[in-house]
């Protein structure tokens, strides 16, 4: 996230013109990144080695070794990629199901007052309920198989998808509709040419939020009950008291979650090339 103010940039560029000096190096952001990353790993190593937190922390080296081991051996019939894919697959299914229903519904609610009056109150009932609270119900309904996990993800991602497409339309400048009307367009044109495209960036913002919620949901579901997936790996680590497995699992989760986020923003860049300058953030 590059959000330095212009004033900061000015300072930076004048600094670069100065001759090389130790102080400038120490204050250089990227150099500091390097230093702090190294310090973090070293500190972690030291804490784990000296067993300051007892045996509950593994050294970075152990974690890497464990990850290497997981690449080749199979846990419950799947190697690391298999488990990562199991989690990702659940997210993709649940996420697409929710998006396919919630986005059109949100658009519909924003465009039609009657639909809004019927759906909004019920939706508002469900909105403040954390998706994780649904896990128990999901297990009661669907057992501990795939459907219950997908269900949780659908529930969790439904709310931001719907809210964002709803608000995306409601925040459109009304004068844009005037343009269409004065060019001779009718209500259908207003919706197709203005409402939908203008709501697009908001919908994508909703997808991004949904995605991070989806990861939380899938992990929670897998922690409660699963036979595969990254959450299951962590649970295994906990049950076997193998912190290296737990931390390795967490790192892989971070990696995969980050990759899926990249995927959505890449998709957005392709699908709405005009958006880059609107947000500016």
């Amino acid at each position: 996230m590059d959000t330095q103010s212009v004033a900061n940039e000015v300072i930076k560029s004048t600094r670069e013109k100065q001759a090389f000096s130790i102080i400038a190096l120490i204050r250089n952001e990227y150099f500091l990144y390097l230093v702090s990353s190294a310090a973090f790993v070293l500190l972690w190593h030291w804490v784990a080695k000296e067993q300051i937190l007892g045996k509950s922390l593994a050294t970075p080296y152990d974690v890497v070794k464990e990850l290497g081991r997981l690449m080749t051996i199979k846990l419950a019939g799947k190697n690391l990629f298999g488990h990562a894919w199991a989690s990702t697959q659940r997210i993709l299914i649940g996420f697409s199901l929710a998006a396919v229903v919630a986005i059109p519904l949100g658009l519909f609610m924003a465009l039609n007052r009657t639909v809004n009056a019927i759906v909004k109150p019920v939706f508002d009932l469900f909105k403040p309920m954390p998706p994780i609270a649904w896990i128990s119900i999901a297990i009661l309904w669907f057992g501990i198989g795939e459907p219950s996990k997908v269900f949780i993800i659908v529930i969790g991602t439904f709310v931001p998808c719907l809210l964002n497409s709803y608000n995306g339309i409601r925040l459109i400048e009304p004068e844009l509709y005037d343009v269409i009307r004065s060019l001779g367009g009718n209500r259908r044109h207003e919706i197709l040419q203005v409402s939908f495209p203008a709501a697009f960036p908001a919908i994508f913002a909703g997808l991004q939020i949904s995605l991070s919620i989806a990861w939380t949901c899938v992990l929670a579901a897998e922690l409660v009950s699963a036979r595969s997936g990254l959450g299951w790996i962590i649970v295994q680590g906990m049950k076997l008291t193998k912190p290296e497995l737990v931390i390795g699992g967490m790192l892989i989760i971070a990696l995969v979650a980050w990759l899926t986020t990249l995927l959505v923003s890449g998709l957005e860049r392709v699908l709405c090339p005009w958006k880059r300058h609107i947000e500016g953030l």
Binding site: L176, D178, R181, L183, P197, I278
Partner: peptide, 20 residues
């Protein structure tokens, strides 16, 4: 009685379609 294509409108804040 309503807007129509016989009158063209230009706005102070441009009101261009950002997505086109």
């Amino acid at each position: 009685t309503g807007p129509g294509p016989d009158r063209g409108l230009v706005f102070q804040s441009y009101m261009l379609f950002a997505w086109r």
